[in-house]
């Protein structure tokens, strides 16, 4: 037990932990910001994983074709939105079951990405680090927040922007109304399914960008297992955060930190079982959601399709 605590102590005082946590948390935040908006509108968007994966592959492909990180990121957002358009139109125009669409999309994107990956084999590399000077000198956390690959910084302005969109615009009000009570929203003249489709497009945009960041800012190259369930953890972060922007970002930071612990523990010289460590973020997610999520209330029409005149 003493060994365990000294291990935790070593990790907590290590700068690498924080910058690793920030990198993981940034990916989760990219995806979770969009997912928050989609869930506020009433879609439990399982295809988030597929959107991130599609974005990741598109980012690598864009880099392969033009050798430019920015173009790769643009590719990533475009493909993320394309995946989102399938989800949006099938679940909120045709009113097919959103879970089926999401699961099929995840399989489809994984299939296409790994198929194209073996036949094209895109070459990409990570973007350079960019230090924001005076701030990056801060002890312990300076490196984590302000000395990262530059695509990571895109997430900072996105958080207040998404909050403003959701809580300070008419569109955001309508989105929230649609997720709480679609019947009333419909009666007051809001096109329910249109708002839901738009919110899914935003989820596709941000999580596509997240996928692009994952490949071009963090890892440097595309592999089939590059996302590895982090899209699902982003969904968990949204539920953990109780559908508020503040809570969601907190959830992303927490899950990112747990993920980073897994990588830092061996490097500071502590031997721990790798399977149990890999399962740790998922177990921690389940446990924290169990003990904190019940205090909040989900959007009332979450995961319920809307057809005018029905119920």
């Amino acid at each position: 037990m003493g060994g365990f605590f000294s291990a935790i102590g070593d990790v907590v005082t290590n700068e690498v932990t924080y910058s690793g946590a920030m990198r993981f948390a940034a990916l989760l935040a990219f995806a979770a910001i969009g997912e928050t908006i989609a869930e506020k509108a009433g879609t439990l968007n399982i295809s988030l994983e597929g959107m991130v994966l599609g974005g990741a592959f598109a980012g690598a492909l864009g880099m392969h074709l033009t050798e430019s990180v920015s173009v790769g990121l643009v590719f990533a957002t475009v493909i993320g939105t394309v995946v989102a358009s399938v989800q949006a139109n099938m679940s909120h125009r045709l009113t097919a079951n959103q879970f089926v669409v999401g699961l099929a999309l995840n399989t489809l994107v994984l299939g296409i990405a790994s198929f194209l990956n073996t036949s094209i084999q895109p070459v990409s590399k990570a973007a350079h680090r960019f230090a924001i000077k005076p701030l990056s000198e801060l002890p312990l956390i300076g490196d984590a927040f302000f000395n990262q690959p530059w695509p990571l910084y895109l997430v900072y302005p996105m958080i207040p922007a998404a909050w403003w969109l959701l809580y300070r615009t008419r569109w955001g009000l309508e989105v929230r109304a649609v997720g709480e009570n679609p019947q009333s929203a419909d009666v007051s003249g809001i096109d329910v399914n249109k708002r839901r489709r738009q919110s899914i497009y935003i989820a596709g945009l941000t999580s596509g960008l997240g996928g692009g960041y994952l490949v071009l800012g963090q890892i440097g190259r595309f592999e089939d297992a590059v996302v590895g369930g982090q899209g699902f953890i982003a969904i968990a972060a949204v539920i953990f955060g109780g559908w508020t922007m503040r809570g969601v970002i907190g959830g992303c930071l927490l899950f990112g930190t747990v993920n980073s612990f897994r990588l830092t523990l061996p490097t500071v010289g502590h031997e721990l079982n790798s399977e149990l460590l890999s399962a740790a973020p998922f177990v921690v997610t389940i446990v924290t959601v169990t003990f904190f999520a019940h205090r909040t209330r989900e959007p009332r029409a979450l995961a319920q399709p809307f057809v005018r005149g029905l119920t």
Binding site: F282, I286, A293
Partner: peptide
């Protein structure tokens, strides 16, 4: 605890 079963079943896979 009203934890959404979609989430738990999914995470328990890993």
């Amino acid at each position: 605890r009203r934890v959404p079963e979609v989430l738990t079943t999914l995470l328990l896979i890993t």
